[in-house]
C-alpha cells in the first residue's frame, strides 16, 4: 500500500518519493488491482469446474438382492445354506486395486470354498479407492458389472466373474478395464441366453452404480478408507499375520480364522475400527 508509507525523512527523499508516486500511478495501480481480482476469480472458477467434472458415474439405483439397503454390504452367498456357526466374513475390495489382486490370488480360493460350503457368510463392500485417487470410474463400473452377473447367475457366476476381474486387472495402476472385456467376461463366467442379455443390459444402464457409490461412501464414513480389508465377525484382520517366514500365505491358519471366527490379537489390525455386518 504505497500511499500509507511513512513520510520521508528529508526533503531530498521527499522529492524522490513524490517522483516515484505520480498521481497517474494511482489509476494504473487500480486497473492492475481489478485485473488481478478478475484473474483470481477466473482461477477459482476453473478449479471449481475441474472439481465438479470429477464425479462418480451415475446410473440406476437398484439395491442388489443380498444387501439390506443402500450403503449396506452385499451378502454374496445368500443362496447358500449356512452352517449354524458360520462367521460373517466381510471383504472390502476394489477391482482395480493391485494389492487386492495379490490378496485375492492368495486367499480368494479359500474364501470362495468356505462361502460355497456355507462355512462363512460372505459379505462384500465394494470400494472405488482407485477411482477416487487416480480418477476414472472403472472400479465403480467393474463392481456394478459383477453385481449384474450375480443378479443373473448367482454366487457361482459372480465368483467366476470376480476371478476374471482380478486376473485381468489392467497392468498399470489407474488404467481402466476395457468396456468390451467387462461385457465379454459375463459369457466367460457362464451366462448364456436371456440371462446374458439381461446382465449386459444391466451393465449398459449401470443399474448398481449408485449402490456401489453408496458402499464406498458408507465404508469411508465408518473409517474403512483403503483396500483390501477383511473383517471376521466385525474384527479387522491383519492379513500380514498370515504370511509365513517363507513368504507364503498360511492358508490353514487363515481358513481356521474365517471358519471359526476366532481372531487372535496378533491377527487383528488395530489401525481399523470394528464393523457390523
Amino acid at each position: 500500500m504505497p500511499t500509507e508509507r511513512t513520510p520521508p525523512a528529508n526533503a531530498r527523499k521527499a522529492k524522490i518519493h513524490a517522483a516515484g508516486k505520480p498521481v497517474a500511478a494511482k489509476g494504473s495501480n487500480r486497473i492492475m488491482q481489478l485485473v488481478a481480482v478478475v484473474l483470481v476469480a477466473i482461477v477459482a472458477a476453473v478449479a471449481l469446474v475441474v472439481m465438479t467434472r470429477h464425479k462418480p458415474a451415475t446410473g440406476g439405483s437398484a439395491v442388489p438382492v443380498g444387501a439390506a439397503g443402500m450403503g449396506e454390504g452385499w451378502v454374496a452367498n445368500a443362496g447358500v445354506q449356512l452352517l449354524g456357526t458360520a462367521p460373517t466374513v466381510s471383504v472390502y475390495e476394489d477391482f482395480r486395486c493391485p494389492i487386492c489382486a495379490v490378496v485375492e490370488a492368495s486367499y480368494g480360493p479359500t474364501i470362495e470354498a468356505a462361502a460355497k460350503a456355507g462355512k462363512i457368510r460372505l459379505v462384500y463392500h465394494f470400494k472405488t479407492v482407485i477411482d477416487i485417487n487416480l480418477g476414472g470410474t472403472s472400479s465403480q463400473r467393474a463392481a456394478n458389472d459383477a453385481l449384474c452377473v450375480a443378479a443373473q447367475g448367482g454366487y457361482s457366476a459372480f465368483a467366476r466373474y470376480h476371478d476374471l476381474l482380478f486376473r485381468n486387472q489392467p497392468a498399470k495402476e489407474g488404467d481402466s478395464f476395457p468396456t468390451a472385456e467387462l461385457t465379454g467376461w459375463a459369457a466367460t463366467a457362464g451366462l448364456t441366453g436371456t440371462k446374458l442379455t439381461a446382465a449386459t443390459t444391466c451393465m449398459v444402464t449401470g443399474g448398481y452404480l449408485s449402490y456401489v457409490q453408496s458402499t464406498e461412501d458408507s465404508s469411508a464414513q465408518a473409517g474403512v478408507t483403503g483396500t483390501p480389508h477383511i473383517f471376521v465377525n466385525g474384527t479387522p484382520l491383519n492379513i500380514s499375520a498370515y504370511v509365513t517366514s517363507a513368504r507364503q500365505a498360511d492358508l490353514t491358519a487363515f481358513e481356521r480364522t474365517i471358519t471359526t471366527g476366532t481372531v487372535s490379537s496378533a491377527q487383528t489390525d488395530t489401525s481399523l475400527p470394528t464393523i457390523k455386518d
Binding site: V50, M51, H54, P56, I132, N133, T225
Partner: peptide
Amino acid sequence: KVPNPQASVR
C-alpha cells in the same frame, strides 16, 4: 487437491 476432489472429501 483439485484433480481428485473425492480424495479431498475422504
